[in-house]
Design a protein around this nucleic acid. Structure first.
Lengths: 219, 219
DNA sequence: GTCTATAAGAAGATAGAC
DNA sequence: GTCTATCTTCTTATAGAC
């Protein structure tokens, strides 16, 4: 043992090392539980049991259930942003959406959490509603910005700003919808259908047929 | 009063008239509650309170909560089918989807119920999962059938059967996704975005630009 | 057919020992 | 920082009066 129990001497410990790890474990477990059961039906007891602590311990890290939800959403957000580097500008950003879907197929948790909470957030009083609303606004705003850049750089055929917003909303609606179909029924060929739809959109935007490179599978 | 209270004579009454009305009221209320709170979070107490009866009365009409859900889903299904007459064949069926979305905008309940339960049915153990899966399969199957008919009748440009299924899945994914965006944030221009997307799909299928008639608003 | 009353259990939250 | 134990509240479901 590195630190024997000393009753009076002041020992400077590694600051909250276990606490931080525990906190991360709780957030990861809560993300899984909220993803599969939703926020309302996912219980603190389930989460505590999965982590291997008692429900009371959760309250030491997060004030209450909503506090835990906030931490889960913040964590989800940072993970989503980390996988979506800001240096991919213009049309290339949309080509990359296929990789995002491939990632989601192998890592069901993140998209399941988002779509489960989106469905629940149909209810105006849901605690995640504002977050989900803002997330959609951000995604649409950023997508529209990138598509305008692509247009101004001559990467795509001309569209007016209003059309661009409708195109972006349609693209993400289609992406969410296919992923929802796949979550409800894993038999659905998620990547196949999405690749088909994405390539059609990119062809229409650019007027070219070779924008989406063929899928390469590891041998 | 038509039937005074007779203690011994056997009076054949109108069979369960109040019971049937009550049953319908319960189903309508349960549909609203399940739509806004989901199945797990929607409680029998809420439903009973809205109807104006006690929770125990619900058990007289439906064995348990899942029985009530089954009745709600059956009712939803029959309403959805009633608004979608089978005699509209070929391409006209898809042109009509805009009317379906306009209806959903004015009657939020039906689509909210479907998408809320779809989100919950991400969980393999959800009692509505099989229904939702089957519903998607039916919609895709019927849509593909109609599009094949349209192709064979020369209404659209040629596509192979596999492409048709992907096109249908994409169309309904887009439709669900836009409606989800609108449910979460009513500021979204549901009909505008959907009309934009639908007209593009129809133009691509047919090679013509006038397939979706312009929106006429009542004066 | 509908009610009151209540059983039996599970939820979120908290007090206090260690 | 984590635990046991407990509180209050809310759920589903049922028993029995009317």
């Amino acid at each position: 043992m590195r630190h024997t129990k000393t009753s009076k001497t002041k020992v400077v410990r590694g600051p909250y090392k276990n606490g931080i790890r525990r906190r991360r474990e709780i957030i990861e477990s809560a993300s899984r539980i909220f993803a599969s059961h939703g926020y309302n039906s996912g219980t603190l007891r389930q989460i505590a049991k999965e982590v291997g602590v008692t429900p009371a311990a959760l309250a030491r890290h997060f004030d209450d259930k909503e506090g835990l939800l906030s931490a889960v959403l913040a964590n989800w957000d940072s993970q989503a942003r980390a996988r979506n580097p800001g240096d991919v500008r213009g049309l290339a950003h949309f080509v990359r959406l296929r990789d995002a879907v491939i990632y989601n197929q192998a890592n069901r948790g993140l998209i399941e959490l988002f779509l489960t909470l989106s469905g629940e957030s149909t209810n105006p009083k849901h605690p995640a509603r504002e977050f989900i609303q803002q997330r959609y606004r951000d995604v649409v705003e950023k997508g529209a910005q990138l598509l305008r850049e692509a247009r101004d750089a001559g990467e795509i055929l001309w569209m007016d700003d209003e059309t661009i917003v409708a195109e972006i909303r349609t693209l993400y609606a289609m992406m969410d919808g296919i992923q929802l179909q796949w979550l409800v029924d894993p038999e659905v060929d998620l990547v196949g259908v999405f690749s088909h739809a994405l390539s059609i959109i990119l062809e229409r935007w650019t007027g070219r047929k070779d924008v989406l490179p063929p899928l390469v599978t590891r041998t």
